[in-house]
């Protein structure tokens, strides 16, 4: 008797929960952005039959790789209310140091790669150290190192570029693994790990707490300084990895590589719904933000829109997406 009564009750609860969950998903920031992205993809695919092809999508994923790798730690940093403007310069400097260590210092290439990535980590660590210990605002500190690290790249390279790497070095930048470019596997793993760490660990929850109320987080016993050091170092690390794989793809190092890339990174993160003042944001949002921008760039060009007009349209869609998001946000609460 009791079991018979419970049965319909349970189904109803499940249906309600499903509907509530779906509604929440659709009106969440990520949901709205996802819908906009899908609409954009559908519209653009009617304009060019070469857009929604496996070939184009993998090609675009490879082009997206460097910005995406830097956008993951940037999401962490912006969630804490910080910012890292120096990622493009760290990217350029790591590439130059990789090339220098191999070509001029004559180290084995494996070691040179490690040194390149390590130099990125150190650069990020220095950012973090000054922000935490000296109390320099992240905007000021990383604006300074934006110039400093780029200057070091120019100084170390002395206008010479490293080239003529052995064949195996190009594998990671241009080769495939199980039919997909290496970049897609690496990026996939990085996204998965970053998302899990942010959503499911006390470290991730700590980042939100810092962004919402740093003083409160300190009183709650969250090791704020250590967390900040970790995320800025992580940012440098990801820039270093991106620099290595980018060098492998284009087969040379240049001191001006990655100039201005920080703006693309920040744009994707903010479009993805991360609050620029900190406290909220998700990796999923950032990933959708990255995809939307890339979809627009690729799809518009394939539909015959010129590069300069594409830039304008990408800007317009960014504003539109944020407007829609704000509009729905009012109903959300």
């Amino acid at each position: 008797m009791a079991a018979v009564e419970q049965q319909p009750l349970q189904t109803e609860t499940f249906g309600q929960r499903l509907r509530a969950w779906l509604t929440r998903l659709v009106i969440s920031q990520e949901g709205i952005l996802l819908i906009i992205t899908i609409i954009a993809m559908l519209v653009l695919s009617t304009q060019s039959d070469r857009f929604l092809t496996a070939r184009n999508l993998t090609r675009e994923a490879v082009l997206l790789f460097e910005v995406a790798m830097m956008a993951l730690p940037m999401t962490y940093i912006i969630i804490t209310g910080g910012i890292d403007l120096s990622v493009g310069s760290i990217f350029g400097m790591s590439a130059i140091i990789l090339g220098f260590a191999w070509q001029d210092a004559g180290l084995p290439l494996e070691l040179a790669i490690a040194i390149g990535i390590l130099s990125g980590m150190i650069a990020g660590f220095v950012n973090g150290l000054f922000i935490v210990r000296v109390g320099v605002p992240p905007l000021i500190m990383t604006l300074a190192t934006l110039a400093l690290y780029r200057g070091m790249a120019l100084g170390i390279s002395q206008a010479r570029s490293a080239r003529g790497f052995p064949d195996w070095f190009y594998e990671v930048g241009r080769g495939d693994f199980l039919g997909l470019p290496w970049q897609i596997w690496i990026l996939g793993a990085a996204i998965l790990i970053s998302a899990i760490v942010l959503a499911r660990t006390s470290f991730g929850r700590g980042l939100y707490a810092i962004g919402n109320n740093e003083l409160g987080a300190r009183f709650a016993g969250i090791p704020v300084d250590r967390y900040k050091l970790i995320i800025y170092t992580f940012s440098g690390f990801m820039s270093g990895v991106a620099a290595w794989i980018f060098t492998s793809r284009v087969s040379t190092t240049r001191s001006d590589m990655g100039t201005g890339i920080e703006l693309d990174v920040i744009a994707a993160v903010v479009l993805g719904g991360t609050d620029i003042f900190g406290g909220s944001g998700t990796i999923a949002g950032t990933v959708i933000g990255l995809i939307l921008i890339q979809v627009l760039k690729s799809g518009l060009l394939l539909s015959g829109v010129k590069g300069d007009a594409t830039t304008v349209m990408v800007g317009a869609v960014l504003i539109l997406a944020i407007l829609i998001n704000n509009l729905v946000g009012r109903f959300r609460s």
Partner: peptide, 18 residues
């Protein structure tokens, strides 16, 4: 719109696809 090799490569990639 700037003399940037990274962007230039992207343009060429996309026109190959087109």
């Amino acid at each position: 719109t700037e003399g940037d090799i990274v962007q230039q490569i992207e343009f060429i990639e996309r026109y190959i696809t087109q």
